[in-house]
Design a protein around this nucleic acid. Structure first.
Lengths: 213, 213
DNA sequence: AGGCTAATGACAGCCGCTGACAGTTGACAA
DNA sequence: TTGTCAACTGTCAGCGGCTGTCATTAGCCT
């Protein structure tokens, strides 16, 4: 029960199995495609039964999004670490940049970064996966909205601004993710630059008259 | 081939079958829940084979979202009808309001409005349905971004503003849909008021310092 | 009326996913 | 060390979503 004690053999074995399943899944998804890969194949690649796969993951989607979830959690942690006096949108923006700086170490513990990046294309081009990803994104947005509200000492249920700000931010992030995964330059730097540029366009986009600018 | 000619018996029959399937599906979904309803049940309620159901709908989800798709298309049409000199966000905002004014006639041709509204709660509370809905929403956003770009005489691939503006707008819309479907007042008026109030909060939410306001 | 084609039903089968039960293996104390 | 308990796993059976195939039915057109 002691969470400080080093995990025993059983725990380590579980972690290894889970990681191996994620790696095998992503490898197969990125090479043959998501729909073309069966759960039996993934399980066989790790030499466990199909039943065991479903004990580790709620479904095929869950395994496919495992690495992205890691990254998202990492980003949320980065946000929590931002100083409280920062303005909400500034904190969000910097948290994303901070998150990318250290993303490598977090992701690499489970899958190669390159596999993680390639998986983005698969998600974006597989309808059912994209759907699951978007749903998970809205859950994250709610979580972040509460975090922002807390920072500012507001009640998320009476003040609309936390949820609105996060929705705006999240909307732009998703646009950039989509454009990035559809483009040629598939580097983290490219995504970083794109996000930065698009966040700068929120003001102009909300201006009443675009032609005068 | 002539699309002006009144549709023949075959075409009318198809339309009736499709509408009947949607009605039966929504009725069952809203009463017993989405997961608890099988495709066989829906097909049986309309007295067609399960195979026929899948000839009309790509999947169970597709039938569940059929009414909402109608409404979304109606909204897009309302947007196209807005005068071109209107500012983008103003056009979007008014299109939503216009859309609701005439939503009744559009939806009622297939399902009772009340069923359509109740279906929102089912979508919002059923993970897999919500996911599908969100995916469909992003497709709509892309479509609207192109529409806005055209209005303003811009290239959607070089000027970020259309997509950013639509992402912001869409983000707020989805927040209000969620809060509305989770709340008590389940009327169109309540949703209209909520949307209006939240759109007004975009400016404040983007302000650098919330505490001074 | 009769031929053509679209729509349907019936059947078989794959795959994702779950419940139930039995076997195995790490954890922990005597 | 050993025995007990709990956790983890494999096997099997089965449901439901979904698709391909083929024979049958029913609207369309001359």
């Amino acid at each position: 029960m002691n969470t400080v004690t080093a995990p025993g053999l059983r725990e380590r074995k579980k972690q290894r199995t889970r990681d191996a399943l994620v790696r095998a899944a992503l490898e197969l998804f990125t090479t043959q495609g998501y729909e073309q890969t069966t759960v039996d194949e993934i399980a066989a690649a790790v030499d466990v039964s199909q039943r065991t796969f479903f004990r580790y993951f709620a479904g095929k989607e869950d395994a496919a999004l495992a690495a992205q979830r890691l990254a998202v959690d990492h980003f949320v942690a980065a946000l929590s670490a931002r100083p409280a006096q920062e303005a909400p949108l500034e904190a969000l923006r910097r948290a994303v940049q901070d998150g990318w700086d250290t993303l490598h170490e977090v992701v690499e513990s489970v899958v190669p970064i390159e596999l993680y990046l390639r998986m983005y294309r698969v998600i974006e081009s597989t309808p059912v996966l994209l759907a699951a990803y978007l749903r998970s994104a809205t859950e994250t947005e709610e979580q972040i909205a509460r975090l922002i509200a807390e920072r500012e000492g507001l009640d998320v249920d009476t003040d609309p601004r936390p949820r609105v700000a996060v929705a705006v931010f999240g909307g732009v992030i998703r646009v950039t993710e989509r454009l990035w995964s559809a483009g040629d330059d598939f580097s983290v730097e490219a995504l970083r630059a794109l996000t930065s540029a698009y966040l700068d366009q929120v003001g102009p986009a909300l201006a009443a008259e675009w032609r005068t600018a």
